[in-house]
Design a binder for these strands. Structure first.
Lengths: 127, 127
DNA sequence: AGTGTAGTTTGACGATCGCCGTACTACTCC
DNA sequence: GGAGTAGTACGGCGATCGTCAAACTACACT
């Protein structure tokens, strides 16, 4: 974090400022549910669940500003739902499936299934 | 709702002012998750899930004031998680298991299981 | 060095949230 | 009728939330 403005760039630091993640045992159910209760974040999580690997923030194209997008990704990371790392100029996101499944077996799957069902009923956006 | 201050109390109304509940199809996943993300409400739902029948509001004895308790029960009712009816001077609460299971199969059970697991790990109150 | 792309930070805004106390209503039982 | 019990309604309080725009940082590619 100490941005010393090192002009000669000693170590390239492998393209990453550090990002804080809660450890598995620190993840709390209420935080996960709260994170998932926000439609925009649910959308992100559902997209991430469909994809095998990592996705950069920019591929989501949410109908909100860039700063709001940053905010939502941060909430998801800080509550332990996603893992984020920098790769070059992009920031890659991945669902913390293993951790969530270990902590709350079946939860993520049923939430995802519920979201899909609701969308199928036409409740995808707003009534 | 038209409180006409009818001084002579015309009809006793069969021990029940009416309570608004969303119909099954109106229940939204994000509202349910939001309702459940609040520890006090989760506690109510878990207690309700353990009991076979209805429970009055007063048996819960939450560590908050009466008005806050009323508030939490109302949130749970309005988002479709519980059913409330008046019985005499008491207001009985029951989980809308059938509706939730029909709408979001397995969701309630995995949330309940997750809450139990987290509590078992010692995360019952606040890490 | 310069331009572009991706994401962050800050600070603000209005809305909602959880909480409370007080005053009130509805019902029961003596 | 009067007292007691169960819950509601009405503000009001401070905190958090989702949102934005503007200014900024970090990296890549000429």
């Amino acid at each position: 974090m100490q941005t010393q403005t090192t002009p000669t760039a000693p170590q390239p630091q492998t393209t990453g400022r550090s990002l804080e993640h809660p450890r598995r045992e620190e993840i709390r159910l209420e935080d996960v549910l709260h994170a998932l209760s926000e439609p925009m974040r649910m959308r992100v999580v559902r997209t991430l669940a469909e994809e095998p690997g990592e996705l950069s923030c920019s591929v989501f194209d949410l109908p909100v500003s860039k700063s709001t997008t940053t905010h939502h990704f941060r909430v998801l990371r800080e509550c332990g739902v996603i893992n984020q790392i920098y790769r070059g100029t992009a920031k890659m996101n991945a669902l913390r499936r293993d951790d969530l499944d270990a902590l709350f077996p079946g939860l993520l799957d049923s939430v995802l299934a519920a979201a899909a069902l609701q969308e199928g009923r036409g409740g995808g956006d707003r009534g």
